[in-house]
Nucleic acid binder design. Structure first.
Lengths: 148, 148
DNA sequence: TGATATTAAATCGCACACGATTAAATCGTT
DNA sequence: AACGATTTAATCGTGTGCGATTTAATATCA
């Protein structure tokens, strides 16, 4: 029973894959994306597009910057994503007349209507997760701390 | 105090961003990547490349398929990544003589040597995380369950 | 044996992420 | 007003992820 504590400075042990939080996070993210894919395919969204739509369903219109703050993404990622949502008729983009540097993103009727079709997704995903609710909540809260 | 339980079927509440495990996971993964970046830049690896190298430091050689099982990635992602590691002189790739369908990936001396430089990364990252050790361990174990 | 099925990796196309740079608009200070 | 600094998106290049297809090698079984 001479097992060293998990805070061991032993570099070999420290590098083992099983010990890595990063790897657990990576695997969990991969699985989450796979679980969402069939549900999101049905409404024609990718996973990041779905997250962006959730932000907009909470509040629209929003500037690209405000969207980026909510999603922790910058314009180099968001601009092409939003152009695809625009091409799909879900959002409109136009410069803010009060400050031409800003671009305002607003849901279209079609974008708002999509919310109804998306409404069943969280419940379906929870079932697919097959994890007790309190486990999900604990995990989510710890992840929020990690995400700062 | 009439707050509904978190398992509520109310679609509006269910879709709220704050309630989404997927979003917490997304944010945590983003932050983790940002924390790793400066550490990995110093040894010339990207985050997925670092994960692949960890798998190889545990056991080399391995086939592309075995690497994919460990990382939960398929050849369409791994092949280009491995070619970049090969271009950097960290691994060698060659067909398995016993089964020409397989490709064997093996660390080079340079690839093995990199392990020493990477040895300090987990400790540095743990410090950057600023989360108590038991919190990290609990989180990691719950994520492993999620990743199945 | 020989036709067919299966397996393993590579290839291709699309959609992120993100660092670095660019371009335009606004702000701040004098 | 004027000019440099800052802010905001967009653009560009590199590196993932992954579904779908392709190619080559091996396995299966009539």
């Amino acid at each position: 029973m001479s097992k060293k504590p998990a805070s061991s400075l032993d570099p070999v042990e420290a590098l083992r894959l099983d010990n890595q939080l990063c790897f657990a996070l990576y695997g969990a993210t991969n699985r989450m994306t796979r679980l969402y894919r069939p549900l999101l395919d049905a409404i024609g969204l990718t996973y990041p597009q779905y997250l962006a739509m959730m932000v907009l369903w909470e509040q629209s219109p929003r500037t690209v910057g405000a969207l980026g703050d909510a999603l922790d993404l910058d314009s180099s990622t968001l601009t092409p994503l939003l152009k695809r949502l625009e091409a799909g008729g879900l959002v409109e983009r136009h410069r803010d007349p009060d400050d031409e540097r800003r671009v305002i993103v607003a849901l279209t009727d079609k974008g708002r209507a999509l919310r109804e079709q998306a409404a069943e997704i969280p419940e379906k995903l929870f079932c697919a997760l097959d994890m007790p609710l309190d486990g999900v909540i604990t995990l989510r809260e710890r992840l929020k701390i990690l995400a700062k």
